[in-house]
Amino acid sequence: MDTTSTHGASPGAARAALLVLADGRFPAGGHAHSGGAEAAVKAGRIREATDLAAFCRGRLHTSGLTSAALAAAAAAGADPLALDEAADARTPSPALRATARKLGRQLMRAARAAWPCDALDALAAARPRGAHQPVVLGVTARAAGLGPEDAAHCVAYESVGGPATAVVRLLGLDPFEATAVLARLAPELDQVARRAAEAGRRALTEGPGTLPAASAPLLDITAQAHAAWPVRLFAS
């Protein structure tokens, strides 16, 4: 596939751009979201590093995989609006749909400043209140000269990196332990990203209906409850 990148790189050839996009300091609003970890901490399901590892593993293989595949499909060049509908269909919780669009809108602002291009402008124009974040991320990755694997890795990593950072803040968990949890998940992250990238490429020819639709019902339920808490530290 050709690339719509304004920078002329072939997809997947860029590496440094992936570091910029995947950096936790990339200003796209993610720092205010716990990925469900705040609700899990409050319920006593995350108390220490081993609980965090289990939580992250569950999220990675469910909503992490689904989101990574959406991003990979967008990075491969699939129609972002069709993918946005596919993301809605795969996100049963209204609170999480709202969160995904809010984060997509915030990512869009950073992406258009970092890698301005027609594809991002068109998506912003079609979804001024925000497209689902993984879809925006995939279009961003493509604009940055990155490929489906890169986009999938980025989203898969975010699906566990966000909760890990949040738990460090919520529990005062030793940051070295939290980072070790992420490091030990790395082989699984690679597997999930590969599966997601394959699914993303398949969606290009067979349509978004073939994308994974894994979900974690408890994350959906607690996200709905969390959105109604009067007092909370994280937006989701």
Binding site: R25, P27, A28, G29, G30, H31, A32, H33, S34, K102, R105, Q106, L107, R109, A110, A166, R169, L170, R232, L233, F234, A235
Partner: peptide, 21 residues
């Protein structure tokens, strides 16, 4: 109201996305 994920300075300085929104 904007939520700040336990880091109020981040939301006004390092990652201003939610406030701009």
């Amino acid at each position: 109201a904007v939520e700040t994920g336990a880091c109020p300075h981040t939301a006004i300085r390092d990652d201003i996305s939610a406030n701009l929104e």
